[in-house]
Design a protein around this nucleic acid. Sequence first.
DNA 1: CTCTTAAATAAGAGTCATTCTTATTTGTCA
DNA 2: TGACAAATAAGAATGACTCTTATTTAAGAG
Lengths: 147, 147
Amino acid sequence: MQKYDSEPRLQHFIDTCRQHQLKITPQRVAIYRALMDSDQHPTADMMYQTVREEFPSISFDTVNRALLTFAGIGMVDVVEVFGGPKRFDPDIDDHHHLHCTACGRIIDFDHEGYSHLEVPAEIARQFKVISKRVVLKGLCATCAPER
Amino acid sequence: MQKYDSEPRLQHFIDTCRQHQLKITPQRVAIYRALMDSDQHPTADMMYQTVREEFPSISFDTVNRALLTFAGIGMVDVVEVFGGPKRFDPDIDDHHHLHCTACGRIIDFDHEGYSHLEVPAEIARQFKVISKRVVLKGLCATCAPER
DNA sequence: CTCTTAAATAAGAGTCATTCTTATTTGTCA
DNA sequence: TGACAAATAAGAATGACTCTTATTTAAGAG
């Protein structure tokens, strides 16, 4: 049923919840598991649709709140999308984004040249930078020919 | 009544509308004029409140649609704000973002070094890049001491 | 193992920012 | 001076949260 052994990550998730005095509920486990298994960057609604299959009685609010809670303790990343709903990213490592403005898809990419961006000195003085990301907006391969 | 001579910009606006087969309506002129006069990055609702003073019968939809139309022909820039309404910017230059993960604020900044980021060749082959932006996440001056 | 209690959940109402629909009005060009 | 496509006003509808309230439950205490 699962793509690969995700138990270590799940265990890490549980430990992190405990460290933050968050209760380990079956709903939260199902939500986190579904997020790990997703290859895209799902929206709260996409997550809701997925988790419902396993948990027919779960509410949208529970899914959304759980995702925001996970983001609050650094277990997932929230990606802002212009003109669209928030997307949640289970990968919290540094990486960059291609954002297709036609279909809304967000594609991760790594690029050595972007990994060592320097923070301008006057910014570093006033803002404690935790992560750096380059966002390229444009059209993905699927959407580009259409126009 | 006006802060400075904005007629040349207004004339440029009118010419650009004509080039795009857009009708020059008094509503659109009032909206563009108000946007030029605003020093912040107003939301559609802020613009609506301002333009209403001159045009009591204007509707929110007209203001919002006009702003989006102006954005469509490159006369204004739309700034995405995490968890908040769109903001419209009469300055269409590229800029970057500081995103405070504690308070959610987004602070614009310019940095010469970020303005010439190169797009990796293998990305450029599969994705038509329209804009590039660096997003720095972290803690702003107000939130940093708290932790 | 049972109790206690603060935290989490389900359901649904409410809110905010758009976005759409429809009837009416108005620039623009023949 | 029409004709007509485009734009507008008003209000309904939509999407994405966000809040409220009553109910249930995880997890530490005893």
